[in-house]
Nucleic acid binder design. Structure first.
Lengths: 134, 134
DNA sequence: CCTAAAATATACTCAGCTGGTATAGTTTCG
DNA sequence: CGAAACTATACCAGCTGAGTATATTTTAGG
């Protein structure tokens, strides 16, 4: 019932880039050093953020990463979904076939969890990275 | 980022017991049949619900399980915590030592997640099993 | 008091996921 | 051309999740 380590690193990488000038390219080693993230692991995570349009990159000498959008346009939810995919409180909320009772639409538990999940997703989408730069 | 299968089964077992007379003992096989839960797995889960004071049991002939409290006094949170233990959105919210940056208290991400976690926990504690018996 | 019905305790298994590492390749600046 | 940087892919060890197996204890009732 928690976000995984990759997502946590993702949060920190994005927040670090948010503090840097969006015009400059920051290389993986610098992010790794400042945020204490294993560099090879970071290098594996970054492409997910790029595919989601959160970060952009440039290869080669003087390459690196930078935010692709303004910090206020990147939510916690964006980063989670970029790295872990969609959020589900219960797997029956992802696919009804997961319910061994084959009863999901009529299930009161299902409905209550769906409700709470909606609120959770809404809250995560409300928090953006500009708010986290004091 | 989801509750596990054991907890899902736990929800269903509790809801099933809520529909039965609280005076009668319902045996594991009956719950297993009605809720489509592997019986040996169910038998392993039940003690967690008992330790949490949600369910009571009697062994031997004509034994079984029954709710230990009224359905309106059992929340979704109660069942989740009974089976999975406490809820954390991020492991740094369980123990600061998980933060590789050793920065949790000052971390803005940490704060935002703690906030959202509190709301999630509150919502889960608001939903009780009486509300799920239409 | 014996037997069958029931829960309990404990240990085991097996697959898939998590977190991380390794290797080889491609792009870019100077 | 060569070094600096990202990309793609594959690999691996340990852990967790989901479920099974075995032996034990408790209880009602004949």
């Amino acid at each position: 019932m928690d976000i995984n380590q990759a997502t946590d690193y993702g949060f920190r990488a994005v927040l670090y880039l948010a503090h840097r000038d969006s015009q400059e390219w920051v290389d993986a080693q610098t992010i790794s050093d400042h945020e204490v993230i294993p560099i090879r692991f970071l290098l594996k995570i970054m492409p997910s953020l790029i595919k989601a349009g959160i970060v952009k990159s440039r290869r080669g000498v003087r390459g690196g990463y930078a935010l692709a959008r303004q910090p206020q346009d990147i939510s916690l939810l964006d980063v989670i979904q970029a790295i872990e995919g969609p959020i589900y409180l219960n797997r029956c909320l992802a696919d009804v076939a997961y319910c061994s009772k084959r009863n999901a639409p009529a299930c009161e538990i299902h409905r209550a969890l769906a409700d709470i999940q909606d609120q959770l997703v809404l809250e995560l989408s409300r928090r953006n990275f500009a708010q986290m730069m004091p």
